[in-house]
Design a protein around this nucleic acid. Structure first.
Lengths: 227, 227
DNA sequence: ACGTTCAGTTGAACATGTTCAACACGACAT
DNA sequence: ATGTCGTGTTGAACATGTTCAACTGAACGT
């Protein structure tokens, strides 16, 4: 009697929300597509009609986590030393990632396969990557000591790679509360600051520029910067 | 009448060889465990009795490829500049990897999942990693300019990470003959040389040591070095 | 001879990501 | 009313990695 049909967007959102909830509750492996469909009250085939693959749902989760990270980091960031700002940013990431550690360990595998939409370099994860790069650009721009203008873009690209590195370390980190990774961040962040300072000296500026240019050619640049 | 049974090692080797052949012929996805079993003339269950999982077979392939790489690189290496030696080493890697590009793109996904034995950091791939680190240690030790002794171990660890980076770039590189990755290598190798030279200056030695120490704490060291 | 043992072997069965041909039903023209 | 159309939906079917209980046969003690 009542209309049983839904609009495509509604169903898709229903599936997405269900999947994200289940991911958080039970991890990647235990979140079966059949379970997602059942919990969402749709047929398996229907889920696949609206969502291309399980990878896409992972992707949606990454995006949501990234959004939260950016929000939390922006709230905590204070003007000042670049190293300190990086430290804040990365600790914020670890705080936001925390509930998904089990998930990360289980699913990151799918996230690095080149064809897959979950690879950080793939076009499908461009939104997530762009979010992170935008945040890092702000971190750099609002920091003292001032970063040499000619290095700025490439530095942001390099920091994004470093961010991926921190994430990778976190995934492999079995210590409680990611203590090891936090130590890494605490040691690495001030080092970045020192390296930037070093890059202003004439002896080092050339090499620094070349290193960053190389990295920049291989990692995507932030497109917009801050709003 | 004749004995149909085989020793465990024989069967295992048969399965291993068949799998490696099929991997090279048809890539990762097309090499089904059922196909491996069939081509090896055993039952599926038997294959699993001798080989824990498909990942393990991938691992065996990695090991074989690594062995070849080390051999080829050792043959080509000439005494001289560190950058040039790195260039030789990495180009050798790309040459050896070449036939498996399709394979790499298909299977690397499984190679980065932390639990999986295929992760470069996992104990299961320690032999492969050790092989590569040993080679890089030789590259460093036989190079001029002489690398400061206190940096040597950590530098090798860092170069191993760089080697993983080169591999990752190669996996994602769609250009013919991995041209893009070769450009990366051609640019990165001399930079390493310059950085090492820079690290001898008093202004930079401190930071360089700290950076390498940080990397060294996070990447495994070579255990033995050259024979 | 006969039973026991045990390494090696078998194939069916299971779980899961994914595909597909068919179905349901509201809207809309006639 | 009736037929047509298209979006949303269904569940069975498929491929594949993996598991498991049962089987085989050679070796060996008695």
């Amino acid at each position: 009697m009542a209309m049983t049909r839904r609009t495509a967007t509604e169903t898709r959102e229903l599936i997405r929300a269900t999947a994200l909830r289940l991911f958080a509750e039970r991890g990647y492996d235990a979140t079966t597509m059949r379970l997602v469909a059942q919990e969402a009250g749709v047929a398996v085939g229907n889920a696949y009609h609206h969502v291309a693959s399980k990878d896409v749902l992972v992707q949606e989760l990454y995006l949501e986590v990234n959004r939260t990270h950016v929000a939390v980091a922006r709230e905590r960031l204070q003007p000042g030393d670049l190293g300190e700002r990086l430290r804040t940013t990365w600790h914020a990431a670890l705080d936001v990632f925390a509930p998904f550690h089990r998930f990360g360990a289980e699913s990151i595998g799918a996230a690095v396969r080149p064809g897959s939409p979950a690879s950080p370099f793939s076009p499908a994860s461009a939104p997530s990557a762009e979010l992170a790069r935008g945040l890092l650009a702000d971190v750099v721009d609002g920091a003292t000591p001032r970063v040499p203008a000619d290095l700025r873009d490439d530095l942001v690209a390099a920091l994004w790679l470093a961010h991926l590195g921190v994430t990778a370390a976190w995934v492999h980190d079995p210590t409680p509360d990611a203590r090891r990774t936090r130590e890494l961040v605490d040691a690495a962040a001030p080092l970045v600051s020192r390296l930037v300072r070093l890059a202003r000296l004439p002896v080092a500026h050339g090499v620094a520029g070349d290193v960053l240019a190389l990295v920049g050619r291989w990692a995507p640049h932030p497109s917009g910067g801050a709003a």
